[in-house]
């Protein structure tokens, strides 16, 4: 553990990304204390005003403070990103490892299920799931999680097939190591790299998917501060008031970028073969 942190520490981009993620988490937890104004308070006199000392990031078409809404919005975006991607990572990896390790008809069944899920367009599939479950934040996360599960399943299965017949797995078995220990200590650590990369990519997609679904009226309600909703409602005003789109867009970009560099840093830190200039 200490060794992994030591290697991670030497990657400045990853450390920067981690700091930004910690900042996001802090702002999500302490939104009430940090936000200068209420994210819901409307003002007819201060509609679409540019950035100023009072409204750092300006106001939107209802006169709501964009800075405060972005801080509150980090709650939704982080929640959606972490829970939806966590769900698809755990379920997808489990399915993929079982399919790859067991092979035979179990592999056939799991692979065909992932094929079916793959055949449907992402947003359409999420729409169907949301239509069945009804609009709410929890259902939204579940729907996004299900949509991204087959990606993890397929990557995990491929990686397992690649590693399963390795000599070191046979060696461990021949030395009397139990099956579950082989899975945990030999198989999983060696398939983690592509999965970590996929986690960071999916995180970005999940935030955007939340925005799209909310825009279609299937996510959180439109008055809820969410980066996706802010960005999509800004599209009508951004020609006149650039700040309505730029700041939520910047928040999404920075969050996605941070998760990407942290993911890359983690992948390198976990692989002893990569020397990060120490």
């Amino acid at each position: 553990m200490i060794k992994i942190w030591d290697r991670f520490r030497h990657n400045p981009a990853a450390v920067g990304g981690l700091l930004f993620i910690l900042l996001l988490i802090a702002s999500a937890l302490l939104a009430k204390q940090v936000a200068p104004q209420s994210p819901y308070a409307m003002s007819t006199t201060a509609r679409l005003t540019g950035p100023s000392a009072v409204h750092w990031f300006g106001t939107d078409q209802f006169g709501r403070d964009i800075f405060s809404r972005i801080i509150y919005g980090s709650r939704i975006s982080l929640q959606v990103g972490i829970i939806a991607v966590g769900f698809s990572f755990v379920l997808g990896t489990l399915m993929g490892v079982i399919a790859g390790y067991a092979g035979g008809w179990i592999d056939q069944i799991i692979s065909r299920i992932t094929d079916i899920l793959f055949a449907l367009p992402d947003i359409l599939l999420a729409l169907v799931i949301m239509a069945i479950l009804g609009p709410s934040l929890n259902n939204l996360m579940l729907a996004i999680g299900i949509v991204y599960t087959p990606i993890f399943s397929r990557i995990a299965r491929g990686a397992v097939l690649n590693i399963r017949d390795s000599l070191f797995i046979e060696a461990a078995y021949s030395m009397g190591v139990k099956q579950y220990k082989i899975l945990l200590r030999h198989l999983l650590p060696n398939i983690l790299s592509p999965l970590i990369v996929q986690i960071t990519l999916s995180f970005a997609f999940a935030i955007l998917a939340e925005a799209s679904l909310s825009f279609l009226g299937l996510g959180v309600s439109p008055d809820t501060p969410s980066w996706g909703i802010m960005l999509s409602s800004a599209k009508d005003w951004m020609e006149l008031s650039w700040w309505t789109a730029v700041f939520p867009g910047l928040a999404i970009t920075l969050a996605v970028l941070s998760f990407n560099v942290v993911g890359d840093g983690l992948r390198d830190a976990l692989d002893p073969r990569i020397n990060n200039g120490q």
Binding site: A171, R185, P189, N190, D271
Partner: peptide, 19 residues
């Protein structure tokens, strides 16, 4: 190839004894 690339030699040597 017979040694797990992500385990130290010490861990690899310990493994059969632990098992």
């Amino acid at each position: 190839s017979a040694l797990n690339p992500r385990m130290t030699i010490n861990d690899s040597l310990n493994e059969p004894l632990k098992a």
